[in-house]
């Protein structure tokens, strides 16, 4: 993935800051990765490389960790993160139908981020709200009893937010069409 201008500096500054706050032991590796991801939203290759350098471990070991644990992301998340719960209770009440509805409405598959980085869709094992099944987590807010109709409602709100953004962006800026 190509980094945008300024992103490189942001990543380097962030890693430096986190490494400065933690002792550079192997045991701190996961907390360090968690803190960097919390700040950046994901773990770019550059960050992994710098963390490896700082802790004096092979970079491939960091890559191992990041690709092993569900929590870590290699790509930036969407502005809105949607997670569909796939716990037992949710599955039994149609969690897979909820997930499919989101996939259909967003035009992306689980684990993906929309091209414009507006939203990303993931499944989670269980958020422990089984009595409200089926459950989806929209930007850390748990939504209970999600039906395909409710999915439409949620998507509508997210789309409205996108339109608001578009209006803001299309203001005075000129020549932003080089994509």
């Amino acid at each position: 993935m190509q980094l945008l201008k300024g992103e490189k500096e942001e990543i380097l500054a962030c890693v430096k800051e986190v490494l400065g706050e933690n002792s550079k032991t192997h045991e701190n590796l996961i907390p360090i990765l968690q803190q960097v991801q919390k700040k950046l939203g994901y773990l770019p290759a550059l960050a992994m490389d710098k963390i490896a350098e700082g802790l004096k471990v092979p970079a491939v070991d960091i890559f191992s960790l990041v690709t092993f644990y569900n929590q870590f992301r290699l790509n930036p998340p969407g502005k809105h993160e949607i997670k569909v719960c796939m716990g037992t209770a949710c599955y039994m009440t149609g969690g897979d139908i909820t997930l499919e509805s989101f996939e259909r409405r967003m035009g992306i598959n689980e684990g993906e981020t929309s091209l414009d980085r507006h939203y990303s869709l993931d499944r989670v094992a269980c958020v422990g709200c089984c009595t409200l099944a089926p459950v989806a987590v929209i930007d850390d807010e748990v939504e209970g009893k999600v039906t395909p109709t409710r999915v439409d409602g949620i998507m509508l709100a997210l789309e409205e937010d996108r339109e608001d953004n578009a209006i803001e962006k299309s203001g005075p800026k000129v020549g932003a069409e080089d994509e």
């Binding site: 191992s64 960790l65 094992a125």
Partner: peptide, 20 residues
């Protein structure tokens, strides 16, 4: 960090020591 297997004792320890 989100891995069911870490409930297993030896995996949990590996995870705490900064490994997969």
């Amino acid at each position: 960090s989100g891995a069911f297997i870490c409930g297993e004792a030896t995996a949990l320890v590996n995870s705490m020591e900064g490994r997969t």
